[in-house]
Simulated assay, not measured.
Amino acid sequence: MNSEAELTRRSLILGSVAGITSLSGCLTDAFNHAIGSSRNINIKSQVFSDVIVKEAPNSWGPLTEMTCIVSPLLESKLGITRAANIRVNRPRSAYDPLMSVAPYTVTLGDYVNEQEHDGQTIWMTQEGMDQIHVSTGWLVSVNRVVATSSVSNIKSAQQKNECIEQVTGDGSESRPLFIAANGGSYAPNTGSQAIQCASDTSTTAWVRRGYSNPSDSTWMTSSADIHPSSYPQLAKLSEYDHPYDADRLAETVQFELVIEFATQNIDGIKIGGLAQQSRKELLRDAIQENVGSQISVEVDSVGTDPLTLANRLSEDSQHGLYISQSDAVLKNHWETVVSGVLAYLQIED
Rank of each mutant, 00 (worst) to 15 (best):
N2M: 06
N2D: 02
S3Y: 14
R9N: 15
R10I: 07
L14G: 09
V17Q: 09
V17P: 05
G19R: 04
S22M: 13
G25D: 02
L27C: 13
T28P: 05
F31V: 01
H33A: 09
I41Y: 12
I43E: 07
S45T: 00
E55V: 15
P57A: 11
N58T: 10
N58K: 04
S59D: 14
E65L: 05
I69G: 10
L73S: 15
L74C: 14
L78A: 05
R87L: 09
A94G: 04
Y104F: 14
V106A: 10
E114I: 12
M124D: 00
T125I: 09
Q126Y: 10
M129W: 13
S141K: 14
S141R: 13
V142Y: 13
S150Y: 05
I154Y: 07
K155Q: 06
Q159C: 06
N161Q: 12
E162Y: 06
P176E: 07
P176Y: 03
L177T: 05
F178G: 04
F178V: 08
A180S: 12
A180M: 10
T190Q: 05
G191R: 05
Q193F: 03
S199N: 12
D200F: 03
S202I: 02
R209Y: 11
Y211A: 06
N213C: 05
T218G: 02
M220I: 00
S223C: 01
D225L: 07
I226N: 03
I226C: 08
H227L: 11
S230M: 13
Y231P: 01
Y231A: 07
Q233P: 03
D241P: 03
D245P: 08
D247T: 02
F255N: 10
L257E: 15
V258L: 08
T263M: 06
T263D: 06
G272W: 01
A275T: 02
A275Q: 04
E281H: 02
L282M: 01
D285R: 10
I287R: 11
N290F: 13
S293T: 12
S296N: 11
S301P: 00
G303R: 01
T304M: 01
D316Y: 04
H319L: 01
Y322T: 00
S324R: 01
Q325A: 04
Q325G: 00
S326V: 03
V329T: 09
V329L: 08
N332P: 11
N332T: 07
H333P: 09
G340F: 02
V341P: 14
Q346F: 02
